[in-house]
Design a protein around this nucleic acid. Structure first.
Length: 472
DNA sequence: TGAAATGTTGGGGCG
DNA sequence: ACGCCCCAACATTTC
């Protein structure tokens, strides 16, 4: 047997605070691999934006490994087996993932390795606490966020402190591996080249983003995070998703910076990420099935035309269109706006939350099965600790409240840039004179609203009320 | 991590 | 000075 061990990179595309890599580096020569496994992912295979981000992230990781990262594409079960045999590896190390398809696949791989008497060990590198560590005292999972977070994250138990990166990794190359380009992660459309300018992936970029957030964002996080034109949010979601930084690094960096309401709020947002993972782990069908079964017969309306108008940012509601265009153009959407556009799709258009989740899955750099599924279910009202069915955002009010000067909306809906603030979020209410002065022709260079807010709100309320209480 | 409808209060105009 | 109406402004309830 050789002195080769395998470190299998997955959602841990970093060198620092990487328990499995640290272990591997201490055990022998390391064959570092990344496997693009669309076969086992099936319907949960990555979307276009994720792949683009991943491509550049892998490129960065490869560079930091001196070009010695090995790429493969295909069924990881077969590829790991092949690699172990070919290199006579004595051990395989990786950090755990929590999507159902990955859990199943990794379990199978672990079994196979055990049969062949090859050491394998997995670690936690993606969560502050794993789903089986955050159970209630009776062994069941938390269904409400506040006690989940309070008892699991604000008690005596502290998350693991971040680990240093291995001092030295002796890397070995597999000359039969693919090149990064052969994974074909880059989009072939020209959407890809435009959106690439909004992308800074990799561990270094993640650390930089974290430091920028600590310097200029976190100080006003609690209030500022609701305003899409401010840069108070962390912007860390894609880095956390791909493991370019760890939640432990973010958690302790925030706590070290300050222990005030702002850092507390940021940590609780990390908590929501953990809550989503807990939900996904204990209810693997979270991406496909209503967490609350009473929604199973809800009369969603499938309207392709309306769905497409929402996707393209042509709904006639400026704050909605701004958000949807931000998503398409930048691979990102501000959290407050995500809630507004999601509420609009699900409640005003009565379109199934899964249609929205699917679009986000394809368009977001930070697309994350746990967070995306849990958040859509939260907005739709069918999730755990979800928004009550009667909470329906008014896109006019929300725009006025959270983008009062309209910088955000004007940036992504430039055809309305000259409208005065007063009418920016409801252009159809402006007089012909004001509209023409601003160069706006409704139905021509900006759409008329695709639904009546008041009517659609009423329609949603009665449908949801009927579902909640079908007898009355 | 809402919004709209409804209820209450209090100041000002006015006969 | 008084009652009455109007209507913000705020509070409470309901969906």
């Amino acid at each position: 047997m050789s002195n080769v061990v395998i470190h299998w990179f997955r959602q841990d595309l970093r060198l620092s605070d990487n328990p499995a890599l640290l272990k591997a580096a201490s055990q022998g020569k390391v064959l570092a691999v990344y496997i693009l496994d669309d076969k086992n992912a099936g319907k949960d295979a990555m979307g276009a934006a994720s792949r683009l981000w991943l491509h550049h992230s892998l490129s960065e990781l490869n560079a930091s490994l001196g070009g010695k990262l090995n790429f493969y594409s295909g069924d990881a079960v077969k590829i790991i087996d092949m690699l172990v045999k070919h290199h006579q590896a004595k051990a395989v190390y990786w950090n755990r993932c929590y999507e159902n398809w990955r859990i199943k696949r990794d379990g199978l791989i672990k079994e196979n390795l055990k049969k062949d008497e090859i050491t394998s060990e997995s670690f936690n590198a993606s969560l502050l606490f794993e789903p089986w560590e955050t159970l209630k005292s009776d062994g069941s999972q938390y269904k409400i966020f506040t006690p989940f977070f309070k008892n699991s994250y604000m008690g005596s138990k502290q998350p693991r402190l971040p680990l240093a990166q291995p001092e030295e990794i002796e890397l070995v190359r597999d000359l039969n591996s693919d090149s990064l380009e052969q994974l074909e992660l880059l989009p072939k459309t020209n959407w890809g080249s435009k959106i690439s300018s909004h992308l800074q992936s990799g561990e270094k970029a993640g650390q930089l983003r974290l430091n920028q957030f600590l310097d200029s964002g976190i100080g006003s996080y609690k209030v500022g995070r609701d305003f899409p034109s401010k840069s108070s949010v962390s912007g860390l979601s894609p880095y956390l998703h791909f493991g370019e930084i760890s939640p432990n690094q973010a958690w302790y960096a925030a706590k070290m910076k300050n222990e005030d309401e702002n850092s507390e709020r940021f940590c609780s947002e990390l908590g929501w990420r953990e809550f989503s993972y807990s939900l996904l782990y204990h209810f693997p069908e979270l991406p496909d099935k209503n967490w609350q079964a009473k929604f199973d017969n809800f009369p969603w309306r499938y309207d392709k035309e309306l769905l497409e108008k929402w996707q393209k940012g042509q709904t006639g509601f400026p704050i909605i269109d701004a958000g949807m265009r931000e998503l398409w153009q930048t691979g990102y959407m501000h959290n407050r706006v995500r809630m507004i556009v999601a509420s609009f799709l699900v409640k005003n258009l009565l379109i199934d939350w899964r249609c929205g989740a699917k679009w986000f899955w394809d368009c977001l750099f930070d697309a994350d099965l746990a967070a995306n599924s849990a958040s859509w279910q939260w907005v739709a009202g069918c999730g755990a600790d979800a928004a009550p069915y009667f909470r329906i955002f008014n896109p006019i009010t929300q725009g006025e409240k959270f983008d009062p000067q309209g910088q955000y909306t004007r940036r992504f809906v430039p055809e309305l840039a000259k409208l005065p603030d007063k009418y920016l979020f409801a252009p159809w209410q402006a007089s012909d004179e004001i509209l023409s002065k601003a160069g706006v022709i409704l139905g021509k260079n900006y759409p008329k609203p695709i639904v009546d807010l008041k009517e659609s709100r009423k329609r949603a309320l009665s449908a949801l009320a009927l579902m909640s209480n079908p007898t009355s």
